[in-house]
Design a protein around this nucleic acid. Structure first.
Lengths: 196, 196, 196, 196
DNA sequence: TGTTAAACGAGACGGTACGTCCTGTCTTCTA
DNA sequence: TAGAAGACAGGACGTACCGTCTCGTTTAACA
C-alpha cells in the first residue's frame, strides 16, 4: 500500500507567506476597515507579491473570511452554578469581541456579506452560530435543572432574539449605556415571564 | 413685516437635476447593488454632470441615504382596539416590505451600508427608525391604557429587540415557519412577563 | 443734427471692472504663465463674475492680447545723426526689455502664445511689431539719406532677420558674449554687403 | 569578468506599448495640436492604459519631447558642388518640416516649451540644433574652399541668424511669398557682403 | 546531484472609478 | 440691462487599485 497523498511537483507554497498574509489582513481590517482596505496594501504589509495572495484567494471576501476564521477560538463555558453567573460570562465574551476595533469590523463584514450573500450566511450560521447556540442552550438547560427558569422556554428563540439584539446594537448603537448593560437588560426582558 | 427669508445669491440648484439624481440612484441600486454602482454611472443615467452630484453629496453613502430617505412613506397606524390587533398590522406591514424582492434588496442594502458606515447608520436610524419606534410606542401606550400590559414596560427596548429579531431573521433565516409567525412568537416571548 | 454717438440702453459696462480684469490678468500672467492661468482665477482675483469677462472677451487669447496691448508704451527714436548711433539706442532698448526679469517673462509669454496661436500672433504682430518695424525703417531710411548704406536695402527683411535673431538668442542663448554684442555682430553681418 | 548589467526586478516595460504611445502622440499632435490633445486620447489611440503613460512621463511636455525626439532623422548632406546647390537642399529639408502640419505643431511646441523652460531649450539645442549647425558649417567650409565666400565668415553666426529667421517666419508669417523664397532671400542678405 | 516545475518578489500591464478642476453657458437676484 | 454669484453639463486631470501578466530567482521533490 503506497501513500495516496503525493506532494505536487514544484516548490510548495510558503507557510510563512501564508501567515504573513493573514496577519496583515487582520491588522489592516482593524486599522482601516473592510471597504477601504486594499489588497495591494495587504501585500505590501505582508511583504509579499500580489500574486501570492491571488494564488490563494480569488476575492477579498474569501481572504477576509479565511483570516477571520483563522482566529476563531474555542468556546468554553464554565458552570458558575447560577444562570446569571453563566450569562454574565457569555455577555462579557460577546462584548469583548464586539467592542474591539477588529471585532466591530468583523461583525460589520459578516453582516454586510451575509445580508447580500445567502450562501455565506448559511456557512457562517453553521460554523459560527451553531456552536454558540448550543452553548447558550446548555446554559439554559442547566438553569431549568436548577429551577431558575420555566421548562417550557425555547432556548433557540431566546438565542435568536439575543443575537438579533446584539447585531442591532452594534449597527445602530441605540443606547448610551454600555453594551453589556444593554444586552443584560434585553435578556432580562426576555426571561421575565419565564423565571420561576 | 418683510420676509426674512432671502434667496442666496447665484443660480439656485436645479430641482429637476435633484430628482433625476435620486431616481437614477434608486434604479442603479436595484439593478446592480450598492457596491458595484458607480457615481459616474449615476451621473450618466441622470444626464447630469458628476459635479452636480458632488456639489450635493460628498460620498456615495450620503447620496444613497438620501435616495432611500426619499422613498419613505407615511406610517399610519389604525387603532384596532386591541394590542394584538394593532401588532398584527405592524408585523404584516414589516413582512410586506421584507418579503418583496425589492424590499429584501433594500433592506440588505441598508444593513450592509449601515454596518460598515456609522454615518449612514445614524442618518437611517434617525430618519427611518425613529418614526417607527414612536408608532410602536403609541401602540404599547394604548395597550397600557387598556390594561393589556404592565405600565412599567419599556417600549423602546421591546422595539429594539423586535427590530433586531427581524434583522436577524432576514439575514440568517433561522426558521422554517413564516416570517410573520416567527416574529409573532418572538414578540410573545418579550411580552410574556408583562401581560396582566 | 443729433449726436451720432448714442449711449446704449441699460447699465453701462463698468470701467472699474474692466481695469480690474486687465490688472488681474497681467498679475497672473507674470505669476504663473499663460498656460496654467485660468479664467476662473482671473475672475476671482479681479473680484468679478466670470460672465463679466466672457461678455468682453471670447477667449483667453483675446483677453491676454488686450492686457498686453494695454501696457504698450510709446516708441520714440532720437536721431543721433549716424546709423550706428541710432542702432545702438534701439539695441539698448531691446536689451533693456529682454534682460529684465519681467521682460524675459513677457517675451517668453508672447513667443509661447504666438507660436501656438496664429490669432494672437497676428494681433501682436500688428499692434506691437508694426510700429517698431516702422521705427527701424525710419532709421535705415535716414542712413540711406546719409549714404551710409545702399539704397536697395530692404528694411523689412533686415528687421525680420534681427527680430528673429533676438528671439533665437533669448530662447537658446547661443553665445557667451552679451546680448547687445551678439545682436550688434548679427546686424553687422546683415549690413556688411550693403554699406557704402 | 561578469556582466555588471542586471535587469531590474519585476516585469520589464513593454517596448510595444512604448512605441504605440509615441506613435499615437505624434498622430494626435499633427491632428489636433498640442493644446487640445489630451493624455486620455493618446492612451485610447495607443490602446494603452493611462497609467502606462504616466509611469513613463510625468507631464505632457516630457511625453511630447520624447515623441519628437524619437523621429529625429539622420541629416545627410550631399555635396552638390556649389554653395547654393547645397543650401537649396538644406532649405528644402527645413521647409518640408516646417510646412507639414506635424512640423508646425512641433516647432510651435518646441518654441513654446523652450521659451519657458531653459532646461528643455538646452537639451533641444544640444540634441537637435548642434548637428544641423555642424552640417551647415560643413557646407560653408566647402564654399570657402571653393572660394565662393570669404574665409573670415562665421558659420555659427549665420546659422543662428537663419535659425532665428525661420523661427520668426513660422511664428509671425511676415511675408506672402513662399517660405523657401523668404529664407533664401534672407540668406542672400547675410552672405551678400561675404561673397567673393 | 542535477533537473524540473511550481511558487516567489517585483512590478508593468490595460482598465475603471475616483474626486478635483476648469470650461463656457445658464439662471437668478440686485443695483 | 449690466453685474456678481454660482449652478449647470461636460470632460480632462492625475491617483489608486483592480486582477492579470511577465520577468528573474528560490526551493524542494524527483530522477
Amino acid at each position: 500500500m503506497s501513500k495516496p497523498i503525493k506532494s505536487p511537483p514544484g516548490r510548495p507554497r510558503s507557510e510563512k507567506s501564508h501567515q504573513a498574509i493573514l496577519q496583515a489582513t487582520l491588522e489592516l481590517l482593524a486599522e482601516m476597515g473592510y471597504q477601504s482596505m486594499s489588497i495591494e496594501a495587504i501585500a505590501a504589509r505582508a511583504k509579499v507579491g500580489k500574486t501570492t495572495i491571488y494564488r490563494r484567494y480569488s476575492s477579498k471576501e474569501e481572504l477576509v473570511a479565511d483570516a477571520i476564521e483563522s482566529l476563531r477560538e474555542e468556546i468554553l463555558i464554565l458552570d458558575t452554578g447560577s444562570l446569571w453567573g453563566d450569562i454574565d460570562i457569555l455577555i462579557e465574551n460577546a462584548a469583548k469581541m464586539v467592542l474591539s476595533p477588529l471585532g466591530r469590523q468583523t461583525v460589520a463584514l459578516i453582516i454586510s456579506t451575509a445580508s447580500s450573500s445567502p450562501t455565506f450566511a448559511q456557512v457562517y450560521s453553521k460554523k459560527y452560530l451553531q456552536p454558540r447556540r448550543q452553548a447558550f442552550g446548555a446554559v439554559l438547560e442547566r438553569a431549568k435543572a436548577r429551577n431558575e427558569i420555566h421548562t417550557d422556554i425555547e432556548p433557540d428563540l431566546v438565542f435568536d432574539l439575543m443575537s438579533g439584539a446584539m447585531l442591532y446594537a452594534m449597527v445602530f448603537q441605540p443606547t448610551d449605556e454600555t453594551f453589556e448593560a444593554y444586552i443584560r437588560r434585553a435578556l432580562e426582558l426576555c426571561l421575565k415571564g419565564n423565571t420561576v
